[in-house]
Simulated scan of single mutants.
Amino acid sequence: MNKFATLWHMFQHHLNPDCAFCGLPRMQGYPLCEPCHTDLPWLDVGGVPALPDCPTSISAFAYQAPISNLLLGIKFGKNLRELATLGTLTATGILPQLTQVPDALLPVPLHTARLHKRGFNQALELARPLAKHLGIPLLTHPVQRDKFTLPQTELDAEQRQHNLQQAFRIHAPLPYKHVAIFDDVITTGATTRELSGLLLANGVDSVEIWSCARTLKSTTIKHS
């Protein structure tokens, strides 16, 4: 999403006092009305099992409707009008769960071919409100995806891990000791696990995994 499109969306959002989901009056300074906010599949960090090889993982939502519908609509339908709303909601869910602030936030990179085709990196755009609120840098250049991989959604757990081997490369030194990796959806954790191993092998001492949503066999949903 370019800067003009972002500013135009913010301008329209400021003029529209209605809930982004149902059209009823929204809460002041927030994109949703109270009932829609309460009904979202918020995750309680205390009830979410840790990802393999990663003691700290935080997700705002369970991968359920309407969050799953929004993510799919944005990614494959290029419904960018909802991107800023979902970024705000993601920050709302993640920020209260933090016990410490990392030095930097790394959105999972897209391969340049996929980025050019899609036109934007969903993980990057969803991570922007978090980085802005926390006052930490977004890492968009030091780590890149050099290997063009098959879409993870088409593969099983074992294939996902093999698909991502050596997919990422660090192209510039990372002067950070504590980094949070951000992805839009975490399923098996294969993508973030590959990135985490790369960071730890290149001087980063501590890695956390953050995401907008996470698929879980059994979820603990909290209502605000």
Rank of each mutant, 00 (worst) to 15 (best):
M10Q: 13
L24D: 09
S211H: 05
G203E: 08
H223E: 06
T215E: 15
L216R: 03
L43Q: 04
L139A: 08
G93T: 07
L126E: 00
F182A: 01
W42I: 02
M1T: 02
P102D: 10
G47K: 13
P142K: 09
T88C: 10
G93K: 11
F148S: 02
A62G: 12
F11A: 14
Q159A: 14
P107Y: 12
H116K: 15
I209C: 05
Q12N: 12
L40I: 02
M1A: 08
Q64S: 07
D184W: 10
D44Q: 08
L83V: 15
V207Q: 09
I74T: 05
Y63P: 00
R118S: 07
Q166M: 07
A123K: 05
I136F: 10
A84M: 06
L98G: 02
T6G: 01
G87V: 07
H37T: 04
G23Y: 10
L150F: 06
A50C: 11
T112W: 15
I181W: 05
F21D: 12
Q165D: 08
Q100E: 14
T220M: 04
V204R: 11
L115W: 15
P142Q: 08
P137L: 12
L89W: 01
P41S: 13
E125F: 08
M10Y: 07
R160P: 01
C33T: 09
D184L: 09
G119R: 11
I67M: 05
V179W: 03
F76W: 11
H14L: 14
T187A: 10
L72A: 12
I94P: 02
G23A: 10
E208P: 00
I74D: 05
K177Q: 13
T149S: 12
F21E: 11
R114M: 04
I221G: 00
I209P: 00
H141Q: 14
H178Q: 12
N69L: 11
T92W: 03
Q165E: 13
R160V: 01
P55L: 14
L195Q: 06
G119M: 13
Q159R: 14
L124N: 03
G29H: 04
L51Q: 08
L126N: 04
R160A: 04
R26W: 02
P25M: 12
H178V: 09
T187G: 08
H162K: 14
V108D: 02
T38W: 10
C36M: 10
D18N: 13
G47D: 08
S224E: 05
Q144Y: 03
F11S: 08
Q28K: 14
H9K: 09
W8P: 00
P52Y: 03
S224I: 11
L110F: 07
L80P: 00
L195A: 03
Q165H: 15
P35V: 09
P107F: 13
L155Y: 08
H116V: 08
H9I: 12
A201V: 01
D18Y: 15
V204S: 08
G87P: 06
G23E: 10
T188D: 09
S57R: 11
H111Y: 05
F120C: 08
R193M: 05
E194M: 07
M27V: 06
W42Q: 01
V185M: 07
L198S: 05
S68L: 04
A201F: 06
H13R: 14
V179A: 05
L51V: 04
C54G: 01
N163P: 03
P173S: 12
K217F: 03
R145G: 01
A157P: 01
T92V: 01
L216Y: 05
N202T: 07
T153H: 13
A180K: 02
